[in-house]
Design a protein around this nucleic acid. Structure first.
Lengths: 339, 339
DNA sequence: CTTGCAAACTTAAACGTTTAAGCATATTTT
DNA sequence: AAAATATGCTTAAACGTTTAAGTTTGCAAG
């Protein structure tokens, strides 16, 4: 049973394919098609269960109505939910999403970009990995519309959607200070990515603002590639000595979850022995015996904004960049002690 | 900067596009192209940074090298990881994945199928929703290759990849019995989907096998659409009365997570007051103070098998169905008490 | 009864590939 | 030396759409 094409309908109706095309794309008014003929064609189309061939359409129009999405890690619920939001939002505009996960790997990122561009996506939404500046610049040269999310490169003028990481981090740390914590440690990723630097900056801002000296011994960085080991080490170091940390600020949910898994094994009680706060939500953090206070990034808003900005760029064909910075909210729960 | 096409290369080299096509698709041997000409063409292609237009290629070949994936809920880590595995596996075979989440909604499922089929996917991998039998039958009639995962309809002969739900569930429940639990409740979804029925069946099998009478008062079903409320109700009912349940078997991870969130608020201690066991993993279950014993479904294996079976069907053009049933493993942790 | 124009359709080219078939020219086989 | 085969390339059609431009017919206006 071959696919039904315009030609089949045309033959059945005894007319040209052009006529059928006009009718089925609702240009019958503009193209002055006779009413009864239009009706007849629509009927035959329904009878034969005609489904337009999207590929042929794309070839003709030069647009695929597909956007490519590259997330840093699809198994992270933050990105999974971003992906879902973007998919939903794109569908509202009759766009589809092809996605891939770069797993924070710059080569995989390049591969994905190549594949998606070959597939003629009309634009890209990307969480750029560390060291992918060149890839981004190349997209600009090729005039391929794209929007960065979650992270961006301050030295590259490109559209992006991000949250005010610095202020949000500072807010989280201030919360710890107000809850009476004195020795506040931070666990971040070892990366040059701007959003992480900003979160670290915010941590330091808050300490300074409250007259606490930020010492390097309380700032720990874990490699994405050696998460488990590095986190164990970091937490060991934070909690050892005469003056152990009495609070930890995790820069992302994956860090927090790994960290808490380890903390659990140490018999340390949250929030009595240690307060914990993190960026990003996650079911694991809800279910934790002391539900974890966290900085909520408005995923829905981010996803919607990303699609909106990208589609504007695609439709207008403009090169103007739009940078959007969204506020977060601090969701206070038990992990920092009651106030 | 327009995209570079075969024609551009052909013009630059002073030859026909056919020649260029032969060379760049490595059919130069077969098509008896001169060596130096082949070299020249390849050089020009590199110089102009030629990227083949996948859409044109698809139109010609009638194949899109894209598979459509419909999961039941992308925000569920089980499906997110399935999606990731399938994407990776597909990429190995030079296939891309377009995905969508049906959110267990039969209309959304139909929408997704339509969209994906219009996009000319070469085949589909689907977690069918309740009531989607007709959709599946229609795919069969249209001779569109597809593979069901996670669930299937016993009355429809179609390829599927699933786990031995009944035996796995029975194993889990046996584990509870061996751990000394007497009054074992189960929380499942209110659905006619076969995999859930099987898990319920396995629960009953195990009870019977150990000479315990399966009573309906210990079997609770929650609606997907009213998860929170129904789970609260279910758990209230299981734990009330003179003879409250001393163990609960959750049919999926989403049920377990919602259930445990509520159980947490009741001040009930796991495993002392109540043993808990569930299907599927999840970080939340790891981080729980009593890490939850669970039935592990081999996600990697499922994803790989799905892609393999689907590609076989696509390539061979056969209509033969392949049903694969995979074993699970019980991962024992603290939530059922130590043995 | 022309001319003008609107209505209802058709023609044909185009999008970027692939590939069977064709056509010279050169080389080998008989 | 004629016939067969090899070599290196071109032509042209095809995939399923879209759409500008063209054609035919009928009818009202001049």
């Amino acid at each position: 049973m071959k696919k039904v094409s315009l030609k089949d309908i045309a033959t059945e109706a005894g007319v040209s394919t052009a006529l059928v095309s006009y009718v089925l794309t609702n240009k019958d008014k503009k193209a002055r098609i006779g009413e009864e003929m239009a009706k007849k064609i629509r009927e035959i189309a329904r009878k034969l269960n005609y489904q337009p061939n999207h590929i042929a359409r794309s070839l003709k129009s030069g647009r695929s109505f597909t956007i490519g999405l590259i997330v840093a890690d699809i198994s992270n619920p933050f990105f999974a939910n971003i992906a879902r939001t973007i998919e939903d939002e794109a569908k509202k505009h009759n766009y589809n999403v092809i996605f891939g996960s770069s797993d924070e790997n710059v080569d995989k990122s390049q591969d994905l970009i190549n594949v998606l561009v070959n597939r003629q996506v009309d634009g890209l939404i990307i969480t750029p990995t560390e060291g992918s500046e060149q890839q981004i610049r190349q997209l600009q040269e090729q005039k391929i519309p794209f929007v960065l999310i979650d992270r961006f490169f301050p030295e590259i003028a490109a559209s992006y959607i991000a949250v005010n990481n610095r202020e949000s981090a500072a807010g989280a740390v201030s919360h710890l200070i107000k809850a009476g914590r004195k020795r506040i440690g931070m666990v971040a990723y070892k990366t040059t990515l701007h959003h992480i630097s900003e979160r670290i900056g915010g941590y330091q801002d808050a300490l300074q603002q409250h007259g606490i000296k930020a010492t390097n011994s309380l700032l720990k960085k874990a490699r994405y590639s050696h998460l488990k080991e590095d986190i164990r080490l970091a937490i060991d170091e934070l909690l050892k000595g005469k003056h152990p940390a009495d609070a930890i600020f995790f820069a992302t949910n994956s860090l927090a979850i790994e960290g808490l898994k380890y903390i659990n094994t140490l018999g340390i009680r949250i929030p009595d022995d240690l307060a914990v706060i993190t960026f990003d939500e996650g079911e694991a953090l809800d279910l934790f015996y002391a539900p974890v206070t966290f900085v909520r990034q408005p995923i829905l808003e981010i996803g919607k904004a990303a699609v909106r900005v990208l589609l504007e760029q695609i439709l207008d064909g403009t090169t103007t960049t739009t940078a959007i910075c969204i506020d977060t909210t601090l969701v206070v729960r038990k992990s920092c002690g009651s106030r």
